[in-house]
């Protein structure tokens, strides 16, 4: 197995909402305002109001990601993207991430494993490929890069 770069996403996030499920257990909800994606054989934008990130965040810094939103390629194909992931970070780094303050991207572990549903045709390789991603929070939003496992 090896990794081959596939996609980069640049995303502007809306306000973060919180669901306090129990003390120390919070479901976050961050809707995506807009975004674009591009890679060697694909490019397009995120469909507005099509979804967001819904992380389960713990006080100790651990967290699990669940996200879902729709993509539209430059040639008009709609693709559903769903992702799960893991974050593990020191509490101070988590506090900064939650406050959308800049942090050193090497100071925490954050990996995503997205899945796609694409129409039959030039993008259907997405339907049978495992991906690994890393993310980075910038002052203006998030950048995600995904590699396919080949």
């Amino acid at each position: 197995m090896k990794l081959e770069f596939a996609l980069e996403f640049r995303i502007a996030l809306g306000a973060r909402m919180h669901i306090e499920l129990a003390e120390g257990y919070t479901r976050g909800a961050v809707l995506i305002e807009n975004g674009t994606f591009s890679g060697p054989s694909i490019a397009g934008r995120i469909v507005e109001k099509s979804g967001g990130d819904f992380p389960m965040v713990r006080q100790d810094g651990s967290g699990r990601f669940e996200s879902q939103y729709l993509l539209e390629t430059d040639d008009g194909a709609n693709i559903l993207k769903r992702s799960t992931g893991v974050r593990h970070a020191p509490p101070e780094v988590v506090r900064k991430l939650m406050a959308q303050e800049p942090v050193d991207p090497t100071s925490y572990y954050m990996r995503m494993t997205p899945r796609f549903e694409a129409p039959a045709g030039p993008y259907d390789w997405l339907n049978r490929t495992i991906f690994v991603g890393v993310g980075q929070r910038n002052p203006t939003g998030s950048i995600f890069r995904f590699w396919k496992v080949v």
Binding site: L3, E8, P105, T106, G135, I143, R145
Partner: peptide, 14 residues
């Protein structure tokens, strides 16, 4: 593609 501002580590397997 502008990737100058992306400094997160590239993933790998072990």
């Amino acid at each position: 593609m502008d990737t100058q501002d992306f400094t997160a580590p590239e993933p790998a397997f072990e």
